[in-house]
């Protein structure tokens, strides 16, 4: 399911082509359903296992103008050694950086197995010509990115130019080659759940390997309801096509408890096959330390202080 067999817009039946027939979403119902996941009580070994899983699903992220090689190296060390005083902890799934930092990360991570994700396509605004976006993408892949996190053209999307959005994603997918493509919808700019669903459908049909909520630069970023809408889109797409699509909520998830609620949601909406870091990721920078604190609390029975966990 890579570039060679990509579905182009013109090949799609009418219903998908218009994307105006994406299912409707009732906002109140989604909020209610999402809040029901938070009622699950996660205790003891279930909590510990869940926390380890969360840690293993994190795309440890730094996406700042002031990023340097030094900063990225430190982050990579953290990714590989989250908390050495607790042996046997999993690593994070990936680190997520700008294209210019991919090479640094690649070197730092070596053969740790941790993936390198790079944002591309004029992240975070996405306001650049298509050829610039393609070059941006190719550069990141060439530098060694295993995964590319692109942004969709929200302006075009709002203008109803769904074909443009579709074709752009398809073109970036082609530029990715073997790298997996995460498509950021920037849900905080889309305005309604109906539009989130429509954008999800477009992205998946255009070739996304993952759909992702946010850049982290716009509030609100990931929320449980918006993630639920996207998970349901993934489920429908799976039943329709047999293709699994990954999900990455990003931004705003900094506490373990909330991350566990997300896990509950994945478990109950998509089930076992998605409960691993190949199909589910958290885009976060400060979540890892909170998870580590909670793991240590479970281990020691004592509430933890941030001073005992490295800040990178």
């Amino acid at each position: 399911m890579v570039s060679g067999s990509l579905t182009m817009l013109s090949d799609l039946p009418d219903r998908q082509a218009g994307f105006s027939l994406s299912p409707r979403i009732d906002q109140v119902g989604v909020e209610e359903r999402a809040s029901r996941f938070t009622k699950r009580s996660i205790k003891k070994e279930s909590k510990l296992n869940g926390l380890k899983l969360v840690l293993n699903m994190i795309d440890l992220t730094t996406l700042e103008g002031k990023d340097t090689a030094g900063k990225v190296k430190q982050l990579c060390y953290k990714a590989m050694h989250p908390h050495d005083s607790y042996p046997g902890l999993p690593t994070v799934a990936a680190i997520c950086v700008y294209p210019s930092m991919v090479k640094v990360a690649k070197k730092a991570l070596g053969d740790s197995g941790i993936k390198i994700a790079s944002v591309a396509t004029a992240f975070p605004g996405g306001q650049a010509p298509k050829d610039v976006k393609i070059r941006d993408t190719k550069y990141a892949v060439h530098e060694g990115a295993d995964e590319v996190d692109m942004v969709i053209s929200r302006g075009k999307f709002h203008a109803g130019e769904y074909n443009f959005v579709f074709d752009e994603i398809a073109a970036i997918k082609e530029a990715c080659g073997e790298a997996r493509l995460k498509v950021i919808l920037e849900t905080g700019e889309l305005g309604t759940f109906d539009k989130v669903r429509r954008a999800s459908d477009i992205a998946m049909h255009a070739g996304a390997d993952f759909i992702k909520t946010s850049t982290g630069k716009i509030a609100p970023a990931a929320t449980m309801p918006v993630t639920l809408v996207m998970l349901e889109a993934i489920r429908d797409f799976y039943y329709k096509t047999g293709r699994m699509i990954g999900m990455k909520p990003a931004g705003g998830i900094s506490k373990s408890k909330l991350a566990l609620h997300y896990l509950v949601m994945v478990k109950e909406v998509l089930g076992e096959d998605w409960l691993n870091n190949h199909w589910f990721r958290f885009g976060a920078s400060s979540l890892a330390n909170d998870v580590l604190m909670q793991i240590m609390k479970e281990k020691t029975g004592v509430y933890q202080s941030a001073n005992y966990f490295s800040v990178d």
Binding site: S41, E45, Y238, G242, K267, G271, E272, L275
Partner: peptide, 16 residues
């Protein structure tokens, strides 16, 4: 014919 979701997950809830 194998499109099916598996809700018998390895991560389960402990009694609460």
């Amino acid at each position: 014919n194998t499109i099916k979701l598996n809700f018998d997950t390895s991560w389960s809830y402990a009694p609460a």
